[in-house]
């Protein structure tokens, strides 16, 4: 369907626009709930049940349970929200960056240092 919108294609980059926001609503809503320590604990207790409570679809659930960031992005996740899920498992944004780029964390960090030179 042509929606009349021109979308910029930037390699390796998802623009979090209305289409993605709608697709990812349930997943991001679940991540938003992780602002509360109580909810984070509830997630750890029964991850699947928690995903079901927030109405995640199969794709979102599978991505969230496997902690695969690229899969979560493909399912409509937004980085700021996904970071709250990552936080439960002690993943910082460099772990997340390394995972997405298929690098070791050390190599990812070295790449960043290099970019500043």
């Amino acid at each position: 369907m042509n929606t009349g919108r021109q979308k910029r294609v930037i390699p390796g980059t998802t623009i979090f626009d209305g289409d993605v926001a709608r697709k990812g609503y349930a997943l991001n809503k679940m991540c938003f709930s992780f602002n509360s320590a109580e909810n984070r604990a509830a997630y750890l207790e029964d991850k699947e049940a928690y995903c079901d409570k927030y109405g995640l679809n199969e794709q979102q659930k599978k991505a969230a349970l496997s902690l695969q960031v690229l899969d979560m992005l493909a399912a409509g996740g937004n980085a700021y929200y996904l970071a709250k899920l990552g936080g439960i498992f002690g993943l910082d944004m460099q772990d997340v960056g390394a995972q997405q780029t298929g690098m070791t964390k050390e190599a990812f960090k070295a790449k960043l240092v290099e970019a500043g030179k």
């Binding site: 390796g12 944004m93 960056g97 997405q100 780029t101 990812f108 970019a115």
Partner: peptide
């Protein structure tokens, strides 16, 4: 900075 996708870690000094 870019936190998401295969382009994560992008910097443009």
């Amino acid at each position: 900075h870019q936190l998401d996708g295969q382009r994560a870690g992008f910097i443009n000094k």
